[in-house]
Design a protein around this nucleic acid. Sequence first.
DNA 1: GATGAATGAGGATTCATTCAT
DNA 2: AATGAATGAATCCTCATTCAT
Lengths: 225, 225, 225, 225
Amino acid sequence: MDGVKVVAIARRAASYEERTGRTREAILAAAEQEFVANGLSGATMESIAKAAGVNKALVYRHFERKELLFQRVLVMAYRRLRDMEANLEFSDDPVAALEELCSFTLHYYLENPNFLVLVGVENLHKGENLRSVAREELAISKLIRVVTGLLAKGERAGAFRPGLDPVDLWLTLSSLCWFSVAGAYTVDITFGRNIHQPAEAEARLAVIKDVIRRYALRPERLPPI
Amino acid sequence: MDGVKVVAIARRAASYEERTGRTREAILAAAEQEFVANGLSGATMESIAKAAGVNKALVYRHFERKELLFQRVLVMAYRRLRDMEANLEFSDDPVAALEELCSFTLHYYLENPNFLVLVGVENLHKGENLRSVAREELAISKLIRVVTGLLAKGERAGAFRPGLDPVDLWLTLSSLCWFSVAGAYTVDITFGRNIHQPAEAEARLAVIKDVIRRYALRPERLPPI
Amino acid sequence: MDGVKVVAIARRAASYEERTGRTREAILAAAEQEFVANGLSGATMESIAKAAGVNKALVYRHFERKELLFQRVLVMAYRRLRDMEANLEFSDDPVAALEELCSFTLHYYLENPNFLVLVGVENLHKGENLRSVAREELAISKLIRVVTGLLAKGERAGAFRPGLDPVDLWLTLSSLCWFSVAGAYTVDITFGRNIHQPAEAEARLAVIKDVIRRYALRPERLPPI
Amino acid sequence: MDGVKVVAIARRAASYEERTGRTREAILAAAEQEFVANGLSGATMESIAKAAGVNKALVYRHFERKELLFQRVLVMAYRRLRDMEANLEFSDDPVAALEELCSFTLHYYLENPNFLVLVGVENLHKGENLRSVAREELAISKLIRVVTGLLAKGERAGAFRPGLDPVDLWLTLSSLCWFSVAGAYTVDITFGRNIHQPAEAEARLAVIKDVIRRYALRPERLPPI
DNA sequence: GATGAATGAGGATTCATTCAT
DNA sequence: AATGAATGAATCCTCATTCAT
């Protein structure tokens, strides 16, 4: 709706390839902002073009249709997160590491609502736009590898219950962080808890860590009561 | 997409008041379907009117603006769920009761995606439409009372950890069920888990129950390992 | 291209039906002019609306799509001609009557190029728009009846060759008039004959009459040489 | 509609001049197909370029504007036909020869609808594009010479009426063939006669020959009745 | 000569909303 | 209360044409 001129900087470049690449980036960046701010149908190609500092027709030349542009934006958002996850540096202690993953995830969602919004929009559209994307593009395997490693290490250390499924654990952890942020507005209105206030965020994170720890740890490792 | 004629039945009725009431209901019912199927901007006043079997202008007469119509639909959806929750009949055993609440919630979400979609849409719109609704209309207190009761009973019975916060517990439980359903499409695409298949739903429910139980129960009540 | 405000007069009428009818007429009249002046793709819904003195969206309300609007215009043009043909008053002498039909047809085409242009456009579009029109709407039978009557009368009078097929004759006559007008521009450029000059038109009409007479009459009725 | 890659063959050739010439031909050939298939406004420079296997900008380099390209295509089509006509080999018998001209013309139109379509389009545009073309480019004189020769021969042989005007005769003959093909679609729809079916084409040709013969021959040479 | 990138203007269609009856 | 007609502002997308390399 307001159309900040995002990346228009740095065009007028050298080779064709370079120029094309920069234009593409500018459009993608602008599109992400517009989609996040206004949703798939709310964002207009006009505003995206303007925000990217290019012509409307050029957006079409590069992305053919609005949905395909959305798809590219979505894929970008996925990759960005998956790449960060793959490069996280965890503590040696597996319990601490698990809590660090909780913390990272909640904070990432809080600071990058784009990801949540884009994925939320996509779910409202029943996954139509994501379905045609090659699985590898989403780099999901990187994430699985990280979680699997974490669980194995904790299990070997005798801290975690054996046989935990990494996908189950991830979905659990992710659900807790996800809803805290994606449902923030209705939760605030109905329960009076506003996670966008730092104190509230930390309180919620503490609960999430607690839930996850109690789920992953052998009971005898938990403090009584 | 094509506008099933929802409730058009049963207009042309008795007293003025009654007639008006029925028209209102018909519009609300039609609007809910359209909003859920196509989102806030996707649903059109035209299609809503057609589905309700009435004239477009009449929809305006009853609800003034599209957003207000959406708001009423949303409030309706909230109340419907809260009313059901308030009337749930739980087992005497508090642990079983807690699991029943998990089961009810997941299944309700699965069978009434309308609620999730509407609330999801509302969150994407940052709660703009819900904010002006009186808190009582959402009947949130009924839900809190139920959860509080459950926790108190479990604590008295020595099963639950003392001092559990009902809102924390509810947000945890709700997050797990919510994301399982609201994120169904992207989860299916990325992790290959499709919760719309019954077996998958039951498997996920088992994990959710487990997470909640381990969070609520005193550790010493948990089976070792 | 120039957008004369065609019929915008005389709206603001009494009953719904009357108002609707007038709007419809105004749009159809404007559309005909625009389609004739600019072709199917050349005419824009915007210019049509403006010429009709109404809003663009209203054109859609009444005719749904540009092609359907074109179809209605085309059908109107057909009916108008067929109705005139059905009401022609011919001389008693069948030979004179036949020549009168030639004369009427050529002059009608000359004075109503709209018909030619519309049908020409439709043929360039391979008849797509006309195909779905009910045969009766085109009132072709009226024309056939007229030609059949003419031939029968001439045959009974011993003037025309027996067994002439009315459709064959009509297609012949129509071809001659048609091409004279529809091909006017290229014929003028290539052969230097401009049928839009009255003298040229009469000269061409004389040839057409001659061709038709020689085709229809028994040879022995023709003047030697 | 989708742009078959027409002549892209045989570029990357010998001398500059030769290469240029071939590119030109490729573009012209592609343009003809596109114009015929989609009309002047329906054909796009993009699709033409793609069909020719070249870059859009190159089309502009060679033809400056869409209309000029259309003009060149049109001229090409004229010349092609005129050249064929100039080289026809007729029977010695002038009556047979005249019928052969009818047959050739109808079949040429049937098999080369391009010519009809292009000229039809041009007439809808009131000859704007053709007007600036030098008369000789259209080689019309060749055709006149052929028809004049035919008539002179028939007249000398005592078969044809004296004083027939070659242009009149040609316009008559051409009208009959023209309309049969150019009006094919609407004629099919309104009269149920589809000239694209071979039997129908032959029947129509017989009528055309009959019309022309009766117009050209001395009456006493016609069979009674 | 040949290419890919970029533009500005326009065009069909849709939609929330208001008006007249 | 209820209806059908009418509107103005968008919105997606296309296209002829020009520019830079």
